[in-house]
């Protein structure tokens, strides 16, 4: 069985910066073959300089990437995408402004070729609270925020410090919050950072360094219970926004671990020559290395025996 295609759902209301984020990620794809699904091509969803060609509902993008519109048939679009050769290495689904990103993630889960890794919901610091209080849109905005694994707070510099802090606190009631300007999040936050090392594993990439973020990585990990580890890393106390790991269990089977905010998933991975490894990313000053080490220690088989 081929490995599952990781999927990230990008939600948020109109003007929150979804398209800007998608284009930023395409520019920082780091050689990944990314596919993008958008609801429609109302306005061209891809920056003109990235577009190589457009053929109906498919846009070819520099670097082997592609963007397709799915209209009202997400399932058919996902099936068609999985048939592409070579298959995409990561799929971004840009939800429409009124869509519930959690519902999209549920639908993605129906196709075993895909694994949804996270839901990033964008919020505009200037307007999100007013929208959430809007008589028509309020409940839709709240449902979108509730679906988020991580909330990306855009335009934080355009509001005063008190309002910014206030909005942040309010959003933290829904999910972890990361402030972003013009969609400039480190691509590793979405795609996960290189872990495990060896070529061919899909993880061999440059180490993650970013002034606003901390990261910790682990190599040559002993056999671990991936599910238990993922759950611990997704607990807010660890300060982990994104973790990606390639782990081996007691039975020798390999597993991919994905954590985005409070959402986590493990899925079977192909055996490879690479080492077991894990990379965790969090905001600078928030990532708790000690907590992560305890989580690892607590997920070894000896810990499981003593539980």
């Amino acid at each position: 069985m081929s490995e599952r295609i990781p999927v990230t759902v990008i939600g948020g209301y109109l003007g929150a910066g979804k398209t800007t984020l998608v284009n930023h990620l395409l520019r920082h794809a780091g050689g990944r073959r990314i596919a993008v699904l958008v609801n429609d091509f109302g306005a061209l969803p891809i920056d003109a300089d990235l577009v190589e060609a457009q053929d109906g509902s498919t846009i070819s993008i520099a670097g082997g990437c592609v963007c397709c519109s799915f209209g009202s048939d997400l399932i058919a679009a996902l099936r068609a995408l999985a048939q592409r050769a070579p298959a995409p290495e990561h799929l971004l689904i840009e939800a429409s402004g009124v869509a519930l990103p959690g519902a999209i993630a549920s639908s993605v889960s129906l196709l075993t070729r895909y694994a949804c890794e996270g839901i990033f919901v964008l919020a505009d610091a200037e307007t999100v609270r007013a929208r959430a209080a809007d008589r028509y849109l309020g409940d839709t905005i709240e449902r979108q925020l509730r679906d988020a694994s991580v909330i990306l707070l855009g335009k934080p510099d355009l509001v005063g410090p008190a309002e910014r802090a206030d909005t942040r606190r309010w959003l933290e009631g829904y999910a972890s919050v990361v402030e972003v300007e013009r969609g400039r999040v480190p691509a590793e936050l979405v795609f996960g950072a290189a872990a495990g090392g060896a070529a061919g594993s899909g993880f061999a990439r440059t180490p993650f360094v970013h002034p606003a973020y901390d990261s910790v990585s682990f190599q040559s990990l002993p056999p671990l219970d991936a599910q238990a580890l993922a759950a611990s890393l997704a607990a807010p106390a660890a300060g982990v926004l994104r973790a990606k790991g390639r782990l081996r269990g007691d039975d020798g089977a390999w597993t991919t671990l994905q954590v985005v905010g409070t959402r986590f998933e493990t899925s079977p991975a192909a055996a490879g020559a690479s080492d077991a490894g894990l990379v965790c990313i969090g905001l600078a000053g928030c990532l708790d290395r000690g907590a992560i080490e305890r989580a690892i220690a607590g997920s070894t088989s000896s810990a499981a025996l003593s539980r």
Binding site: D73, I75, A76, A103, S106, S109, L110
Partner: peptide, 30 residues
């Protein structure tokens, strides 16, 4: 036809498999 299908539009039977009722556009389009 597998266990652990997790979708609000796909009810599961006592055997853990979908009952065959597919509700809403995405489950139907499957």
């Amino acid at each position: 036809l597998r266990k652990a299908v997790n979708h609000p539009g796909i009810p599961l039977g006592a055997d853990g498999l979908p009952t065959g009722e597919l509700k809403g556009p995405d489950p139907m389009m499957m």
